[in-house]
């Protein structure tokens, strides 16, 4: 089992092309932990902004009457991938992992697979 900071560091080192990672509480929009990022990628701003993305999708699903859950959300930019993975554990409801990847270096299938593994090992 890994704590927040260890899990985020692992995401940064083991996932090829990682630019930044954050664990975010989407009931408040605040990050529980961040790794990487920097001047071009402010992870605090990303945490608050992507909270709105997650909330909008949750609300849309409710309105559509879909009795389902979100596993992950992929946003494809010109030069980056942004992956949002909602956590499922009993103690980690209401949290998501956010990962920004360099599109030219990342392998999307591998990144999703790795992120799933990191979630399984994460203990909040």
């Amino acid at each position: 089992m890994a704590n927040t900071q260890t899990a985020l560091k692992e995401a940064m080192t083991s996932i090829e092309g990682s630019l930044g990672a954050a664990l975010v509480d989407y009931s408040s929009g605040m990050a529980l932990g961040t790794v990487g990022g920097g001047k071009e990628l402010d992870l605090t701003v990303a945490a608050a902004g992507n909270t709105d993305v997650v909330r909008a999708k949750v609300r849309t699903m409710e309105q559509l009457g879909l009795q389902d859950t979100i596993e992950d959300i992929l946003i494809t930019l010109g030069n980056q991938y942004h992956l949002i993975r909602l956590l499922k554990g009993r103690d980690s409801q209401g949290l998501f992992l956010y990962l920004a990847l360099d599109k030219n270096r990342a392998n999307l299938a591998m990144a999703r697979h790795q992120l799933r593994r990191i979630e399984a090992e994460l203990e909040v």
Binding site: G29, A48, D52
Partner: peptide
């Protein structure tokens, strides 16, 4: 409210 955004 999104407290993260509110702070920002």
């Amino acid at each position: 409210t999104n407290v993260g955004r509110l702070h920002m």
